[in-house]
Design a protein around this nucleic acid. Sequence first.
DNA 1: ACCTGAACACCGTTCAAGT
DNA 2: ACCTGAACACCGTTCAAGT
Lengths: 229, 229
Amino acid sequence: MVARTRREPLSRELVLSAAVALVDTDGLQALTMRRLAAELGVEAMSLYHHLPGKNGLLDGLVETVIGEIDVAMGHLPDAAADQDWRVAVRQRCLVAREVMLRHPWAPPLFGSRTTIPAGVYLHYEKILATLIAAGFSYHLAHRALHALGSMALGFVQEPFNPAAAADGADVEPSEAELTQMANVLPHLIAMVAAESHTDGAPTLGWCDSQAEFEFTLDLLLDGLARHLG
Amino acid sequence: MVARTRREPLSRELVLSAAVALVDTDGLQALTMRRLAAELGVEAMSLYHHLPGKNGLLDGLVETVIGEIDVAMGHLPDAAADQDWRVAVRQRCLVAREVMLRHPWAPPLFGSRTTIPAGVYLHYEKILATLIAAGFSYHLAHRALHALGSMALGFVQEPFNPAAAADGADVEPSEAELTQMANVLPHLIAMVAAESHTDGAPTLGWCDSQAEFEFTLDLLLDGLARHLG
DNA sequence: ACCTGAACACCGTTCAAGT
DNA sequence: ACCTGAACACCGTTCAAGT
Protein backbone atom coordinates (compact mmCIF):
# COMPACT_ATOMS: atom_id res chain seq x y z
CA MET A 1 0.00 0.00 0.00
CA VAL A 2 2.61 2.55 1.08
CA ALA A 3 5.33 3.17 -1.47
CA ARG A 4 8.64 1.94 -0.16
CA THR A 5 11.41 4.38 0.48
CA ARG A 6 13.69 2.59 -1.98
CA ARG A 7 16.63 3.06 0.35
CA GLU A 8 17.52 -0.55 1.22
CA PRO A 9 17.45 -3.08 -1.63
CA LEU A 10 14.85 -5.83 -1.84
CA SER A 11 15.47 -9.10 -0.04
CA ARG A 12 13.72 -12.42 0.26
CA GLU A 13 12.49 -11.52 3.74
CA LEU A 14 11.20 -8.14 2.64
CA VAL A 15 9.32 -9.66 -0.28
CA LEU A 16 7.84 -12.40 1.88
CA SER A 17 6.63 -10.12 4.63
CA ALA A 18 5.05 -7.83 2.04
CA ALA A 19 3.38 -10.88 0.53
CA VAL A 20 1.98 -12.02 3.89
CA ALA A 21 0.65 -8.53 4.55
CA LEU A 22 -0.95 -8.39 1.12
CA VAL A 23 -2.65 -11.76 1.47
CA ASP A 24 -3.80 -10.98 5.02
CA THR A 25 -5.64 -7.90 3.82
CA ASP A 26 -6.74 -8.77 0.28
CA GLY A 27 -6.80 -12.57 0.12
CA LEU A 28 -4.76 -15.17 -1.71
CA GLN A 29 -6.23 -14.42 -5.12
CA ALA A 30 -4.89 -10.87 -4.84
CA LEU A 31 -1.32 -12.20 -4.65
CA THR A 32 0.05 -11.50 -8.08
CA MET A 33 3.66 -11.01 -9.06
CA ARG A 34 2.74 -7.69 -10.62
CA ARG A 35 0.61 -6.57 -7.69
CA LEU A 36 3.17 -7.61 -5.09
CA ALA A 37 5.90 -5.81 -7.01
CA ALA A 38 3.79 -2.67 -7.20
CA GLU A 39 3.28 -2.88 -3.44
CA LEU A 40 7.05 -2.86 -3.11
CA GLY A 41 7.52 -0.01 -5.57
CA VAL A 42 9.27 -2.22 -8.06
CA GLU A 43 8.70 -4.01 -11.34
CA ALA A 44 7.36 -7.60 -11.35
CA MET A 45 10.55 -9.01 -12.84
CA SER A 46 12.63 -7.78 -9.93
CA LEU A 47 11.04 -10.34 -7.65
CA TYR A 48 12.70 -13.15 -9.58
CA HIS A 49 16.08 -12.07 -8.20
CA HIS A 50 14.91 -12.96 -4.69
CA LEU A 51 12.46 -15.79 -5.20
CA PRO A 52 12.27 -18.59 -7.77
CA GLY A 53 8.92 -17.62 -9.28
CA LYS A 54 5.37 -17.74 -8.00
CA ASN A 55 5.66 -21.27 -6.64
CA GLY A 56 8.70 -20.32 -4.63
CA LEU A 57 6.77 -17.35 -3.33
CA LEU A 58 3.95 -19.61 -2.13
CA ASP A 59 6.46 -21.97 -0.50
CA GLY A 60 7.95 -18.95 1.23
CA LEU A 61 4.53 -17.92 2.50
CA VAL A 62 3.97 -21.33 4.08
CA GLU A 63 7.43 -21.27 5.59
CA THR A 64 6.87 -17.80 7.04
CA VAL A 65 3.57 -18.70 8.67
CA ILE A 66 4.94 -21.91 10.17
CA GLY A 67 7.86 -19.90 11.47
CA GLU A 68 5.47 -17.64 13.35
CA ILE A 69 4.49 -20.56 15.55
CA ASP A 70 7.96 -20.85 17.02
CA VAL A 71 8.25 -17.09 17.34
CA ALA A 72 5.01 -17.07 19.33
CA MET A 73 6.17 -20.05 21.42
CA GLY A 74 9.31 -18.10 22.29
CA HIS A 75 7.23 -15.26 23.72
CA LEU A 76 5.53 -17.60 26.16
CA PRO A 77 6.37 -17.55 29.92
CA ASP A 78 8.85 -20.37 29.57
CA ALA A 79 8.74 -23.91 28.33
CA ALA A 80 10.12 -25.51 31.46
CA ALA A 81 11.42 -28.99 30.75
CA ASP A 82 9.61 -30.45 33.76
CA GLN A 83 6.22 -29.55 32.36
CA ASP A 84 3.45 -32.07 32.00
CA TRP A 85 3.37 -33.33 28.39
CA ARG A 86 -0.31 -32.53 28.12
CA VAL A 87 0.25 -28.93 29.09
CA ALA A 88 3.16 -28.58 26.68
CA VAL A 89 1.39 -30.16 23.71
CA ARG A 90 -1.83 -28.33 24.45
CA GLN A 91 0.02 -25.03 24.58
CA ARG A 92 1.75 -25.59 21.25
CA CYS A 93 -1.52 -26.51 19.53
CA LEU A 94 -3.24 -23.43 20.93
CA VAL A 95 -0.41 -21.22 19.74
CA ALA A 96 -0.55 -22.80 16.29
CA ARG A 97 -4.26 -22.13 16.19
CA GLU A 98 -3.71 -18.48 17.07
CA VAL A 99 -1.26 -18.13 14.20
CA MET A 100 -3.71 -19.78 11.78
CA LEU A 101 -6.50 -17.46 12.92
CA ARG A 102 -4.24 -14.56 12.00
CA HIS A 103 -3.75 -16.11 8.56
CA PRO A 104 -6.93 -18.01 7.72
CA TRP A 105 -5.75 -18.44 4.13
CA ALA A 106 -2.81 -20.55 5.30
CA PRO A 107 -4.36 -23.97 6.07
CA PRO A 108 -5.96 -24.37 2.64
CA LEU A 109 -2.70 -23.19 1.08
CA PHE A 110 -0.72 -25.81 3.00
CA GLY A 111 -3.06 -28.48 1.77
CA SER A 112 -2.61 -27.53 -1.85
CA ARG A 113 1.19 -27.36 -1.81
CA THR A 114 3.12 -30.42 -2.98
CA THR A 115 6.31 -29.77 -1.03
CA ILE A 116 6.46 -29.72 2.75
CA PRO A 117 8.65 -26.94 4.16
CA ALA A 118 11.25 -27.77 6.79
CA GLY A 119 9.39 -25.76 9.41
CA VAL A 120 6.56 -28.28 9.43
CA TYR A 121 8.96 -31.08 10.31
CA LEU A 122 10.49 -28.97 13.05
CA HIS A 123 7.07 -28.28 14.50
CA TYR A 124 6.28 -31.98 14.67
CA GLU A 125 9.75 -32.76 15.99
CA LYS A 126 9.09 -30.55 19.00
CA ILE A 127 5.77 -32.19 19.77
CA LEU A 128 7.35 -35.59 19.30
CA ALA A 129 10.25 -34.75 21.61
CA THR A 130 7.76 -33.86 24.33
CA LEU A 131 5.87 -37.11 23.90
CA ILE A 132 8.98 -39.30 23.92
CA ALA A 133 10.30 -37.55 27.03
CA ALA A 134 6.96 -38.33 28.68
CA GLY A 135 7.37 -42.04 28.04
CA PHE A 136 5.44 -42.53 24.80
CA SER A 137 6.63 -45.41 22.64
CA TYR A 138 7.54 -44.45 19.09
CA HIS A 139 4.47 -46.32 17.94
CA LEU A 140 2.04 -44.46 20.20
CA ALA A 141 3.82 -41.16 19.55
CA HIS A 142 3.44 -41.75 15.82
CA ARG A 143 -0.27 -42.27 16.22
CA ALA A 144 -0.46 -39.22 18.46
CA LEU A 145 1.13 -37.06 15.74
CA HIS A 146 -1.43 -38.24 13.22
CA ALA A 147 -4.28 -37.75 15.69
CA LEU A 148 -3.14 -34.24 16.58
CA GLY A 149 -2.39 -33.39 12.96
CA SER A 150 -5.29 -31.09 12.29
CA MET A 151 -5.11 -29.53 15.75
CA ALA A 152 -1.43 -28.80 15.39
CA LEU A 153 -1.61 -27.05 12.05
CA GLY A 154 -5.24 -26.44 11.25
CA PHE A 155 -5.26 -28.72 8.27
CA VAL A 156 -5.12 -32.40 7.52
CA GLN A 157 -1.94 -33.69 5.97
CA GLU A 158 -3.77 -36.78 4.81
CA PRO A 159 -4.51 -37.78 2.16
CA PHE A 160 -0.79 -37.20 1.82
CA ASN A 161 -0.44 -35.87 -1.66
CA PRO A 162 2.52 -37.54 -3.36
CA ALA A 163 1.69 -35.69 -6.57
CA ALA A 164 4.10 -33.36 -8.39
CA ALA A 165 5.61 -36.43 -10.00
CA ALA A 166 4.82 -34.74 -13.28
CA ASP A 167 6.88 -31.72 -12.25
CA GLY A 168 10.07 -33.76 -12.07
CA ALA A 169 10.58 -32.39 -8.57
CA ASP A 170 11.50 -35.20 -6.21
CA VAL A 171 9.29 -35.31 -3.15
CA GLU A 172 11.70 -37.60 -1.39
CA PRO A 173 14.50 -35.82 0.43
CA SER A 174 17.96 -36.59 -0.94
CA GLU A 175 20.52 -38.68 0.95
CA ALA A 176 22.52 -35.58 1.87
CA GLU A 177 19.40 -33.84 3.13
CA LEU A 178 18.51 -36.89 5.19
CA THR A 179 21.77 -37.01 7.12
CA GLN A 180 21.52 -33.28 7.68
CA MET A 181 17.96 -33.70 8.92
CA ALA A 182 19.06 -36.27 11.49
CA ASN A 183 20.84 -33.53 13.42
CA VAL A 184 17.90 -31.21 13.66
CA LEU A 185 15.11 -33.82 13.69
CA PRO A 186 16.54 -36.61 15.86
CA HIS A 187 13.24 -37.91 17.27
CA LEU A 188 11.46 -37.82 13.95
CA ILE A 189 14.25 -39.77 12.26
CA ALA A 190 14.34 -42.28 15.11
CA MET A 191 10.59 -42.73 14.94
CA VAL A 192 10.61 -43.37 11.21
CA ALA A 193 13.38 -45.93 11.74
CA ALA A 194 11.52 -47.63 14.57
CA GLU A 195 8.21 -47.71 12.72
CA SER A 196 9.54 -48.68 9.31
CA HIS A 197 10.51 -52.30 9.94
CA THR A 198 7.50 -53.47 11.85
CA ASP A 199 4.88 -55.96 10.76
CA GLY A 200 2.24 -54.44 8.49
CA ALA A 201 2.84 -53.23 4.98
CA PRO A 202 2.59 -49.47 4.90
CA THR A 203 0.34 -48.06 2.22
CA LEU A 204 1.45 -44.50 1.55
CA GLY A 205 5.11 -43.84 2.13
CA TRP A 206 5.97 -45.47 5.42
CA CYS A 207 2.75 -44.95 7.35
CA ASP A 208 -0.33 -47.10 7.19
CA SER A 209 -2.58 -44.09 6.95
CA GLN A 210 -5.76 -46.13 7.04
CA ALA A 211 -4.76 -47.49 10.44
CA GLU A 212 -3.81 -44.02 11.66
CA PHE A 213 -7.13 -42.64 10.50
CA GLU A 214 -9.09 -45.34 12.29
CA PHE A 215 -7.05 -44.88 15.45
CA THR A 216 -7.87 -41.19 15.54
CA LEU A 217 -11.49 -41.84 14.73
CA ASP A 218 -11.81 -44.35 17.56
CA LEU A 219 -10.04 -42.01 19.94
CA LEU A 220 -12.74 -39.43 19.24
CA LEU A 221 -15.62 -41.90 19.34
CA ASP A 222 -14.36 -43.35 22.64
CA GLY A 223 -14.11 -39.88 24.11
CA LEU A 224 -17.59 -38.95 22.95
CA ALA A 225 -19.04 -42.20 24.30
CA ARG A 226 -17.52 -41.43 27.68
CA HIS A 227 -19.08 -37.96 27.68
CA LEU A 228 -22.40 -39.50 26.68
CA GLY A 229 -22.75 -41.90 29.33
CA MET B 1 -9.39 -36.77 -23.64
CA VAL B 2 -11.78 -38.52 -26.05
CA ALA B 3 -13.66 -36.19 -28.37
CA ARG B 4 -17.34 -36.25 -27.56
CA THR B 5 -19.78 -37.57 -30.10
CA ARG B 6 -21.66 -34.24 -30.17
CA ARG B 7 -24.98 -36.05 -30.27
CA GLU B 8 -26.57 -34.95 -26.98
CA PRO B 9 -26.15 -31.31 -25.96
CA LEU B 10 -24.00 -30.24 -23.05
CA SER B 11 -25.50 -30.15 -19.58
CA ARG B 12 -24.37 -29.08 -16.15
CA GLU B 13 -23.91 -32.70 -15.09
CA LEU B 14 -21.92 -33.54 -18.20
CA VAL B 15 -19.63 -30.56 -17.72
CA LEU B 16 -19.12 -31.33 -14.03
CA SER B 17 -18.29 -34.97 -14.51
CA ALA B 18 -15.81 -34.05 -17.25
CA ALA B 19 -14.28 -31.52 -14.86
CA VAL B 20 -13.93 -34.09 -12.06
CA ALA B 21 -12.28 -36.51 -14.47
CA LEU B 22 -9.91 -33.83 -15.70
CA VAL B 23 -8.87 -32.77 -12.22
CA ASP B 24 -8.49 -36.38 -11.08
CA THR B 25 -5.99 -37.08 -13.82
CA ASP B 26 -4.22 -33.75 -14.33
CA GLY B 27 -4.69 -31.81 -11.12
CA LEU B 28 -6.58 -28.69 -10.17
CA GLN B 29 -4.25 -26.29 -11.97
CA ALA B 30 -5.08 -28.05 -15.24
CA LEU B 31 -8.73 -27.08 -14.86
CA THR B 32 -9.15 -24.24 -17.31
CA MET B 33 -12.30 -23.11 -19.01
CA ARG B 34 -10.55 -23.47 -22.35
CA ARG B 35 -9.04 -26.85 -21.52
CA LEU B 36 -12.28 -28.25 -20.12
CA ALA B 37 -14.18 -27.04 -23.17
CA ALA B 38 -11.63 -28.69 -25.47
CA GLU B 39 -12.06 -31.92 -23.53
CA LEU B 40 -15.77 -31.71 -24.31
CA GLY B 41 -15.21 -30.86 -27.97
CA VAL B 42 -16.62 -27.40 -27.56
CA GLU B 43 -15.55 -23.76 -27.31
CA ALA B 44 -14.80 -22.22 -23.88
CA MET B 45 -17.70 -19.81 -24.08
CA SER B 46 -20.22 -22.62 -24.38
CA LEU B 47 -19.61 -23.59 -20.78
CA TYR B 48 -21.15 -20.34 -19.59
CA HIS B 49 -24.55 -21.58 -20.71
CA HIS B 50 -24.42 -24.35 -18.13
CA LEU B 51 -22.35 -22.90 -15.32
CA PRO B 52 -21.98 -19.36 -13.96
CA GLY B 53 -18.26 -19.00 -14.67
CA LYS B 54 -15.16 -20.54 -13.14
CA ASN B 55 -16.29 -20.01 -9.55
CA GLY B 56 -19.56 -21.77 -10.25
CA LEU B 57 -17.57 -24.58 -11.77
CA LEU B 58 -15.49 -24.96 -8.60
CA ASP B 59 -18.63 -24.88 -6.46
CA GLY B 60 -20.04 -27.60 -8.67
CA LEU B 61 -16.91 -29.69 -8.19
CA VAL B 62 -17.25 -29.49 -4.42
CA GLU B 63 -20.94 -30.33 -4.64
CA THR B 64 -20.23 -33.33 -6.86
CA VAL B 65 -17.57 -34.79 -4.56
CA ILE B 66 -19.74 -34.35 -1.47
CA GLY B 67 -22.55 -36.03 -3.35
CA GLU B 68 -20.38 -39.07 -3.92
CA ILE B 69 -20.41 -39.73 -0.18
CA ASP B 70 -24.13 -40.34 -0.15
CA VAL B 71 -23.94 -42.38 -3.32
CA ALA B 72 -21.32 -44.59 -1.68
CA MET B 73 -23.36 -44.81 1.52
CA GLY B 74 -26.33 -46.02 -0.54
CA HIS B 75 -24.29 -48.92 -1.87
CA LEU B 76 -23.62 -50.18 1.65
CA PRO B 77 -25.35 -53.30 3.07
CA ASP B 78 -28.04 -51.23 4.74
CA ALA B 79 -28.16 -48.47 7.25
CA ALA B 80 -30.50 -50.19 9.68
CA ALA B 81 -32.05 -47.73 12.09
CA ASP B 82 -31.25 -49.93 15.08
CA GLN B 83 -27.52 -49.69 14.50
CA ASP B 84 -25.14 -48.57 17.22
CA TRP B 85 -24.37 -44.87 16.74
CA ARG B 86 -20.64 -45.59 16.84
CA VAL B 87 -20.89 -48.07 13.99
CA ALA B 88 -23.02 -45.72 11.94
CA VAL B 89 -20.84 -42.64 12.43
CA ARG B 90 -17.66 -44.64 11.95
CA GLN B 91 -18.99 -46.05 8.70
CA ARG B 92 -19.91 -42.65 7.32
CA CYS B 93 -16.49 -41.21 8.16
CA LEU B 94 -14.72 -44.13 6.52
CA VAL B 95 -16.83 -43.76 3.40
CA ALA B 96 -16.09 -40.03 3.31
CA ARG B 97 -12.40 -40.81 3.58
CA GLU B 98 -12.60 -43.24 0.65
CA VAL B 99 -14.20 -40.55 -1.48
CA MET B 100 -11.50 -38.04 -0.51
CA LEU B 101 -8.77 -40.53 -1.34
CA ARG B 102 -10.28 -40.79 -4.81
CA HIS B 103 -10.16 -37.00 -5.09
CA PRO B 104 -7.17 -35.83 -3.04
CA TRP B 105 -7.49 -32.34 -4.52
CA ALA B 106 -10.91 -31.93 -2.90
CA PRO B 107 -10.12 -31.17 0.77
CA PRO B 108 -7.80 -28.24 -0.01
CA LEU B 109 -10.38 -26.97 -2.49
CA PHE B 110 -13.14 -27.11 0.13
CA GLY B 111 -10.99 -25.10 2.48
CA SER B 112 -10.40 -22.35 -0.04
CA ARG B 113 -14.04 -21.92 -1.09
CA THR B 114 -16.05 -19.15 0.57
CA THR B 115 -19.48 -20.68 0.07
CA ILE B 116 -20.55 -23.96 1.63
CA PRO B 117 -22.58 -26.18 -0.69
CA ALA B 118 -25.82 -27.69 0.56
CA GLY B 119 -24.36 -31.21 0.42
CA VAL B 120 -22.04 -30.41 3.32
CA TYR B 121 -24.97 -29.49 5.52
CA LEU B 122 -26.80 -32.65 4.52
CA HIS B 123 -23.77 -34.73 5.40
CA TYR B 124 -23.61 -33.22 8.87
CA GLU B 125 -27.38 -33.49 9.26
CA LYS B 126 -27.15 -37.25 8.84
CA ILE B 127 -24.39 -37.62 11.41
CA LEU B 128 -26.30 -35.35 13.76
CA ALA B 129 -29.52 -37.32 13.33
CA THR B 130 -27.66 -40.47 14.34
CA LEU B 131 -26.22 -38.81 17.45
CA ILE B 132 -29.54 -37.33 18.58
CA ALA B 133 -31.29 -40.66 18.09
CA ALA B 134 -28.61 -42.21 20.32
CA GLY B 135 -29.41 -39.83 23.15
CA PHE B 136 -26.83 -37.06 22.62
CA SER B 137 -27.87 -33.64 23.88
CA TYR B 138 -27.75 -30.89 21.27
CA HIS B 139 -24.78 -29.46 23.13
CA LEU B 140 -22.73 -32.65 23.10
CA ALA B 141 -23.78 -33.41 19.54
CA HIS B 142 -22.60 -29.97 18.51
CA ARG B 143 -19.21 -30.60 20.04
CA ALA B 144 -19.12 -34.02 18.42
CA LEU B 145 -19.67 -32.48 14.98
CA HIS B 146 -16.78 -30.10 15.52
CA ALA B 147 -14.58 -32.89 16.85
CA LEU B 148 -15.37 -35.18 13.95
CA GLY B 149 -15.08 -32.34 11.46
CA SER B 150 -11.80 -33.28 9.88
CA MET B 151 -12.59 -37.00 10.01
CA ALA B 152 -15.91 -36.51 8.31
CA LEU B 153 -14.68 -34.47 5.37
CA GLY B 154 -10.91 -34.60 5.38
CA PHE B 155 -10.50 -30.93 6.05
CA VAL B 156 -11.00 -28.50 8.86
CA GLN B 157 -13.86 -26.08 8.53
CA GLU B 158 -12.26 -23.85 11.12
CA PRO B 159 -11.10 -21.17 11.00
CA PHE B 160 -14.45 -20.58 9.39
CA ASN B 161 -13.72 -18.13 6.65
CA PRO B 162 -16.40 -15.44 6.60
CA ALA B 163 -14.56 -13.65 3.79
CA ALA B 164 -16.13 -12.86 0.42
CA ALA B 165 -17.59 -9.75 1.97
CA ALA B 166 -15.80 -7.89 -0.79
CA ASP B 167 -17.62 -9.98 -3.39
CA GLY B 168 -20.99 -8.66 -2.32
CA ALA B 169 -22.17 -12.26 -2.08
CA ASP B 170 -24.06 -12.81 1.15
CA VAL B 171 -22.70 -15.70 3.17
CA GLU B 172 -25.78 -15.79 5.35
CA PRO B 173 -28.65 -17.83 3.93
CA SER B 174 -31.75 -15.78 3.15
CA GLU B 175 -34.96 -16.05 5.18
CA ALA B 176 -36.64 -18.07 2.44
CA GLU B 177 -33.70 -20.43 2.22
CA LEU B 178 -33.76 -20.88 5.98
CA THR B 179 -37.36 -22.03 6.12
CA GLN B 180 -36.73 -24.35 3.21
CA MET B 181 -33.67 -25.73 4.97
CA ALA B 182 -35.71 -26.55 8.06
CA ASN B 183 -37.49 -29.26 6.10
CA VAL B 184 -34.39 -31.02 4.93
CA LEU B 185 -32.10 -30.20 7.87
CA PRO B 186 -34.41 -30.52 10.89
CA HIS B 187 -31.80 -31.63 13.42
CA LEU B 188 -29.25 -29.05 12.32
CA ILE B 189 -31.82 -26.24 12.61
CA ALA B 190 -32.97 -27.48 15.99
CA MET B 191 -29.39 -27.68 17.22
CA VAL B 192 -28.61 -24.13 16.15
CA ALA B 193 -31.76 -22.95 17.89
CA ALA B 194 -30.94 -24.86 21.06
CA GLU B 195 -27.32 -23.73 21.14
CA SER B 196 -27.90 -20.11 20.16
CA HIS B 197 -29.55 -18.82 23.32
CA THR B 198 -27.33 -20.37 25.92
CA ASP B 199 -24.94 -18.66 28.29
CA GLY B 200 -21.64 -17.74 26.62
CA ALA B 201 -21.25 -15.21 23.84
CA PRO B 202 -20.40 -16.97 20.60
CA THR B 203 -17.37 -15.63 18.77
CA LEU B 204 -17.72 -16.65 15.13
CA GLY B 205 -21.28 -16.86 13.93
CA TRP B 206 -23.09 -18.82 16.58
CA CYS B 207 -20.34 -21.23 17.73
CA ASP B 208 -17.68 -20.47 20.26
CA SER B 209 -15.01 -22.04 18.12
CA GLN B 210 -12.26 -21.59 20.68
CA ALA B 211 -14.26 -23.74 23.12
CA GLU B 212 -14.94 -26.31 20.40
CA PHE B 213 -11.28 -26.45 19.52
CA GLU B 214 -10.23 -27.00 23.12
CA PHE B 215 -12.91 -29.65 23.61
CA THR B 216 -11.60 -31.63 20.65
CA LEU B 217 -8.02 -31.15 21.74
CA ASP B 218 -8.79 -32.44 25.23
CA LEU B 219 -10.72 -35.37 23.81
CA LEU B 220 -7.58 -36.39 21.93
CA LEU B 221 -5.20 -35.71 24.81
CA ASP B 222 -7.45 -37.68 27.21
CA GLY B 223 -7.53 -40.59 24.81
CA LEU B 224 -3.77 -40.56 24.33
CA ALA B 225 -3.20 -40.37 28.09
CA ARG B 226 -5.38 -43.43 28.52
CA HIS B 227 -3.37 -45.32 25.91
CA LEU B 228 -0.17 -44.21 27.63
CA GLY B 229 -1.17 -45.24 31.13
C1' DA C 1 24.33 -7.44 -8.64
C1' DC C 2 20.08 -5.67 -9.28
C1' DC C 3 16.39 -3.84 -11.89
C1' DT C 4 13.70 -3.01 -16.31
C1' DG C 5 10.80 -2.93 -20.78
C1' DA C 6 8.97 -5.47 -24.33
C1' DA C 7 7.29 -9.68 -25.70
C1' DC C 8 5.12 -14.53 -25.39
C1' DA C 9 1.83 -17.78 -24.22
C1' DC C 10 -1.52 -18.17 -21.53
C1' DC C 11 -5.92 -16.91 -18.32
C1' DG C 12 -11.41 -15.65 -17.32
C1' DT C 13 -14.93 -13.13 -19.22
C1' DT C 14 -17.75 -9.60 -22.37
C1' DC C 15 -20.34 -9.07 -26.26
C1' DA C 16 -22.29 -9.11 -30.65
C1' DA C 17 -23.09 -12.39 -33.93
C1' DG C 18 -24.35 -16.66 -35.86
C1' DT C 19 -27.69 -21.13 -36.25
C1' DA D 1 -31.76 -22.19 -26.89
C1' DC D 2 -27.27 -23.09 -27.69
C1' DC D 3 -22.82 -22.25 -29.53
C1' DT D 4 -19.07 -19.20 -31.53
C1' DG D 5 -15.17 -15.77 -32.84
C1' DA D 6 -12.92 -11.74 -31.75
C1' DA D 7 -11.60 -8.78 -28.29
C1' DC D 8 -10.31 -7.02 -23.44
C1' DA D 9 -7.90 -6.96 -19.32
C1' DC D 10 -5.37 -9.61 -17.01
C1' DC D 11 -1.77 -13.65 -15.65
C1' DG D 12 3.44 -15.89 -14.99
C1' DT D 13 7.64 -15.95 -17.16
C1' DT D 14 11.59 -15.33 -20.93
C1' DC D 15 15.11 -12.59 -22.47
C1' DA D 16 18.09 -9.05 -23.87
C1' DA D 17 19.15 -4.77 -22.25
C1' DG D 18 20.20 -1.24 -19.13
C1' DT D 19 22.88 0.77 -14.64
